[in-house]
Every structure is written in C-alpha cells, then in structure tokens.
Simulated assay, not measured.
Amino acid sequence: MKLLFVADPLASFKIAKDTTFAMMREAQQRGHALAVCTPQGLSWQQGLRVQARVQDIALTGQADDWFSAQPERLAALADFDAVLMRKDPPFDSEYFYATHLLEQAEREGARVFNRPRALRDHPEKLAVMEFPQLIGPTLVTRSSADIRAFHAQHQDIILKPLDGMGGMGIFRVKADGLNLGSIIETLNRDGAQSVMVQKFLPEIAQGDKRVLIIGGQAVPYCLARIPQGNEVRGNLAAGGLGVAQPLSARDQEIANAIGPVLQQRGLLLAGVDVIGGCVTEINVTSPTCFQEITQQTGCNVASLFADALEAAVRGA
C-alpha cells in the first residue's frame, strides 16, 4: 500500500516513544510505501482534487538520521491507498479546516483514518457526554456560579480547559476552595470559555489508564500513567510514570461499550482515559502509548494497528 501520514514535521518526532513513528516502522516492515506531509501542505483548487506537498520517505533504522526523504512533490490524496491523520492537538481552527479538506478528499475517493467528520464530531473531552453511565460526576459550563455549586457539592474537584492537551491547564481544588475564584477566572475568562469540571478521583494515585481501541477492539494491555511527587496529573508530558498492565474487567467493559460505536463512525484508533473505573476523556486526534506498551509487555500494538488498517482498506 501507499500510505500518507499527515503529521507534525518529522524533525519534531521523539522516535523513542512516538506512536506515529511506530506505525511507520511497522508499515515499512510490511512493505508499504511511506509519504508524509504537514497540514500546512494541504490545498484545494477548483477543478482539481485535494492535493498535498508530500515527501516520500524511508526509515533508516538509525537513532539520529532516522529517515531519508525524497524531494517534495505535489500529489492528490486520493492516489494513496490510505491517509492517516496524525497531527497532534490542539484541535484549533486550522485543525478544523484541515478536516474539511480531508473530507473533500474522501469525496474524491481517498480513505482517511480517522475519518475527518468523526474527528470533528468527537472533541476529546466532550465526547464522554455520550456515555454518562461510564463517567464520574462531571460538569461543562461557562458559569462561575455553577462551578462553585459543583465544588460545594463534591468538595474536591478538577478543572480543565476543553482544548488542553498533555495535562495542560489542569487544576485541582480541595475542600478549602483555595484559589477557586482565580482558577475560574483563568479558565473561563469571564464566561467567554467553557470549562470541564470533574469530581477528583483519588484512584489517580494508581494511574490514569490509557486504554487503546483499534478497529473497535481493545488492546489487551493499557498504560497506567502514574503521577509523580506532588503532581496531580498522570500525563506522560507532565512527568507521569507509564506502567503497562493487563486490562481489568472494568477496562474491558468500558472498551466493549465504546469500541463498536467509535468503529462504526470511522474511528479506527482511539485512546480512552480511565481513572478509578470512570472514563475521563476519549482521545481520537492522535492517540499515543504504542511504544510504551510494546516495550513493557511484548504486545506489538503497531502490528495490531497495521492489521486493522489493512483490513479497513481492503473492506473499503
């Protein structure tokens, strides 16, 4: 197959842990041809198909100069067997516009994973609203009064912006309410921005689990991201320790409820975050943790993904 990865610049990759790199490595080992572009390279002109400025690449197996690239060329997305949207968050206006270009490419015959419309329809924090039976006490609001009432009820809460990533902008407020007013002002900007508020789950001490769902099925191991020191966040980007472990019965129950729904909508890969048996986020833009799970368990997650991708392309 000819694969096009829409991603951040390759120079920014940390290949020791990067999931997109793991996908590329597995694909090349299977004999698939690799090409890359950034979202900035996408374009459409009346009378033409959606195009991208792409580079054909090959992985070298070296730690430093880890890829070789051919000169940039223009190519129609529909000429690839699969297009993988792997641009990291944030999901900003330009990401949103990129999904529209990718959806036009779909109308022209391109096969895009995850599907652009599904990416737009599943903001990673708000997606949990569809599964209220699987989440803990949660509030989404612009109202400072609502946030104060939620704190009064639950005493120990987490506040976070809807467009954050990697644990960015997450605050914990305990029963004493210390700095609650200042945190509300910072996050909701006098009612201009919505805020997600959740009851603090003390089980975070055992880890914020990333449960990967590929082709509607759960990977048999998750990565528990355990906060370190006085940190409340388990995110790896915030210094959390990643510990791979088999799925619990509750993890599997959650995957069984969410996985088929996501697959039906064209979400080939998703990362469901679980704390204390409660879903906190459903990540669909650029889910990670392939390499950490593989290195610790021997379960080749990239191979599971490649199997699902090949099956999806054959079935298209």
Rank of each mutant, 00 (worst) to 15 (best):
F200A: 13
Q206F: 10
G240C: 02
L236D: 10
G234T: 04
N235P: 06
P227D: 04
A249R: 12
G215E: 14
R265T: 08
P202R: 13
G239W: 10
D251I: 03
Q206R: 11
S248M: 15
I254W: 02
G234Q: 02
A237V: 06
G271A: 06
R225V: 07
G259M: 03
I204D: 03
R250P: 00
G240P: 03
L268F: 02
V195G: 02
A257M: 13
V197R: 05
G271C: 08
A249T: 13
Y221A: 04
Q228L: 10
S248C: 05
L269E: 01
V197N: 05
Q206Y: 05
A244H: 11
G216Q: 08
I213P: 01
S248T: 08
Q228S: 09
G259K: 07
L241K: 14
I204S: 04
Q198K: 09
L201Y: 07
Q252I: 02
A249F: 05
L247N: 13
V197A: 15
Y221C: 09
L262T: 01
L241E: 13
Q206A: 14
E231K: 06
V232Y: 11
Q245M: 14
L262C: 08
I204L: 08
A244T: 08
R265P: 06
Q263V: 13
L241C: 14
V232L: 09
P260Q: 13
A224T: 01
V272W: 00
R225W: 03
A255F: 01
V243Q: 13
V272F: 01
G259C: 08
D251V: 07
A257F: 12
Q228E: 11
